[in-house]
Nucleic acid binder design. Structure first.
Lengths: 210, 210
DNA sequence: ACCTGAACACCGTTCAAGT
DNA sequence: ACCTGAACACCGTTCAAGT
């Protein structure tokens, strides 16, 4: 099956499926490899060369599918926003309408706690730089935002659009800030760090604001 | 004054004060240079070698003052938290007590908007990794948190400590999330991006939560 | 004590070349 | 159309050496 001239004498070979990827879509394979690296070793492992290595291709092959390293990271972030939107939507659908917004907010924080590196990538500076020019990324993050808006509408029916957007902005700020502080371990300084993230989110989201 | 064997024939020389830094504290000089690079060119410019170059020393000299690159970044973040705490405290002192908390929150968002790269560094992953082991960083960020707690206490006197901390966590989450979304340009998707950040902060902070 | 210079194993990007 | 190999200018870190 595989030609012998695989060159990598010092690399330990993949135990299963040593497929050469000469045919299928390398684009998805690179994103899969990048996601694996991100979850297993953190954002520092997302070097373009390391990603290509993990996908068993030369690093220059990546340039046939992405403009540069940041474009690859944006595509990875777009994937993250897709899963994010799905997780939020599923939480909203499982909950009774009047508690829809609360459960979407809790799911927001839970996603951040469960995928810290991906969450940081999605909202980080490297991805933000080219966000406006990346249509796929914009569409994916708009989908996530749409779920949040739907949650607000379901919890408080009859609100006009401006009020919905104001309320959604405040809600988004709370859950987004809570997620960030949680990932940084900053809530520990307030004696709230050791508790279950979901419980903290639920407590703060259902409490009074100021 | 300066010995001729400065080697850098191709580099344009500094127009003023070509001091050799062989005497003073290189530690502060490196942090000054790093801060300049961060503000002028963003986080991507914070290579250890580029920082040393900007401070007119060999890159290996930095290792006599910092364990590694991340330790330098943490020291820079600690400086940021010092200024951050001062900005928050000054805003709190200028405001009447009952509005102290609101003005501290607005100052929080304003700091993020005025120093986006520094703010991201302070709360970013590279600094978070070694945060627990860095005493100076912990002390500086605790000072900032203390100002926030004081603001809550001033706005709602007579609260017990647990309530103060819960309220501070919610307030922190709001302003922190608002800052993050603002820096990412995400609020634009809600039609709130083009407005003045301070106005948005004031509107959301004084509005109702859910 | 503080800084330098050489060395090592990386990195992103470009370009000519292969199939 | 898709991938490789060589090259360029970087990078963080270590280590022996200089003053």
């Amino acid at each position: 099956m595989l030609p012998l001239a695989r060159s990598s004498g010092m690399l330990r070979p993949m135990p299963t499926h040593p497929r050469p990827y000469h045919h299928g879509n390398l684009r998805d394979a690179l994103l899969d490899a990048a996601e694996r690296l991100l979850e297993r070793k953190g954002a520092g492992a997302l070097a373009l060369r390391a990603i290509a290595r993990a996908a068993h291709v030369t690093h220059t092959a990546a340039y046939h599918h992405f403009d540069d390293r940041e474009a690859l990271l944006r595509a990875l972030a777009a994937r993250g926003f897709d899963r994010f939107a799905a997780a939020l939507a599923s939480a909203g659908q499982r909950a009774p309408p009047e508690r829809g917004f609360l459960e979407v907010g809790v799911a927001y924080v839970r996603f951040a706690a469960e995928h810290p590196a991906l969450f940081r990538l999605m909202f980080g500076a490297e991805v933000a730089r080219g966000r406006r020019a990346d249509d796929a990324l914009g569409a994916a993050s708009d989908r996530a935002l749409g779920v949040l808006l739907d949650g607000v509408r379901a919890s408080a029916p009859g609100l006009d659009e401006a009020a919905v957007r104001r309320r959604a902005a405040a809600a988004w700020a709370i859950v987004h800030g809570l997620s960030g502080l949680l990932l940084d371990g900053q809530l520990a300084a307030l004696g709230l760090g050791s508790e279950d993230p979901e419980r903290v989110a639920r407590e703060i989201l259902s409490g009074e604001p100021t």
